[in-house]
Simulated scan of single mutants.
Amino acid sequence: MTNRLLPLILTVSVLALTGCFGGEEQWHAKDISGLMPELEFELVGTGGQTVTPKDSAGNIRLLYFGFTSCPDVCPTTLTDLRKAVNQLPPDYRDDVTTLFVSVDPQRDTPERLGSYASFFGDHVVGLTAAEPELRELTKRYRTTFGYDEPDADGNYNVSHSSAVYVFDRSGKARLLLRPGLTTQQVSEDLAHLASESRS
């Protein structure tokens, strides 16, 4: 009985190892290669200047839509991304740029956005645009945003996606970071992506 089972056990083991190490790359995040368009935008930077992907060409780019008045999701996400980048090997830390795009242009002036983005590190770039341009950009990446009714003081919440889009050095969409990933898992994916595409 044991001799008959041994070949079966060996076969299953080989198949298991093949599934872990062979074939497609294994990512912690969702692989969106070929499913999303490349990185393309024309937005307003914190100094009032026009910013395009060319300004961070050659870097891994993390695209995240949010707003500075966000009470929890945005600061938590940006903090986790900073931790993940800080866990990268030193040679890769300067190779990652986080593009924080505010979908609340009415309140998020370039000055306010600049102060907010700088709190999360030197490699976080604050960007925004007029609402129609923001609608087009979020539609490009199959997401959206919305505004709640203002309260008596004029304050309102903004609904938006919590996903982070990861683009490689050439601007191709590669990964989608969704809630539930640890900073270590994100860091491992970024290190893998940085190492495979470093010139």
Rank of each mutant, 00 (worst) to 15 (best):
L8F: 08
L8T: 11
I9A: 13
L10P: 05
L10M: 04
T11D: 01
T11V: 14
V12T: 07
S13Y: 10
V14E: 03
A16P: 04
T18F: 15
G19V: 01
F21D: 01
F21E: 01
F21K: 02
G22T: 07
G23L: 09
G23H: 12
Q26A: 09
Q26T: 12
W27M: 06
W27H: 11
W27L: 08
W27V: 10
H28D: 10
A29R: 08
A29F: 04
A29I: 13
D31H: 07
G34E: 05
L35N: 05
P37R: 09
P37M: 08
E38R: 14
F41G: 05
L43N: 00
L43D: 04
V44F: 00
T46I: 06
T46L: 01
G47H: 07
Q49P: 06
T50W: 06
T52M: 08
T52P: 08
T52G: 08
P53V: 07
P53G: 05
K54N: 13
D55G: 02
A57Q: 11
G58V: 06
I60P: 03
I60V: 15
R61A: 02
L62W: 02
L63W: 03
L63K: 12
F65D: 00
F65A: 04
F67L: 03
T68A: 13
T68S: 12
S69T: 06
C70F: 01
P71R: 15
D72H: 11
D72C: 09
V73P: 09
V73R: 03
C74I: 10
C74E: 13
P75W: 06
P75K: 07
P75R: 09
P75T: 11
P75F: 07
L78S: 09
T79W: 06
T79Q: 12
L81Q: 06
A84L: 08
A84F: 11
V85M: 12
V85Q: 15
V85E: 15
L88F: 15
P89C: 07
P89G: 12
P90W: 03
P90F: 09
P90T: 05
D91R: 14
Y92A: 15
Y92N: 14
R93I: 14
D95W: 03
T97Q: 15
T97A: 14
T98C: 15
T98L: 15
F100K: 05
F100T: 09
V101H: 09
V101F: 12
V101L: 10
S102M: 12
D104Y: 12
Q106W: 11
D108A: 04
D108R: 06
T109C: 10
T109G: 06
T109D: 02
P110C: 12
P110T: 11
E111S: 14
E111D: 10
R112K: 14
L113I: 10
G114F: 06
S115G: 13
S115I: 15
A117E: 01
S118P: 09
S118D: 06
S118N: 15
F119Y: 15
F120K: 12
F120A: 11
G121V: 05
G121H: 01
L127I: 03
L127N: 04
L127E: 08
L127D: 03
T128E: 05
T128F: 02
A129W: 00
P132C: 09
P132I: 10
E133S: 07
L134I: 00
L134C: 02
R135S: 01
R135N: 05
E136L: 09
L137P: 02
K139M: 12
R142M: 08
T144C: 04
T144E: 01
T144G: 04
T144H: 01
F145W: 05
G146F: 13
G146W: 13
Y147C: 00
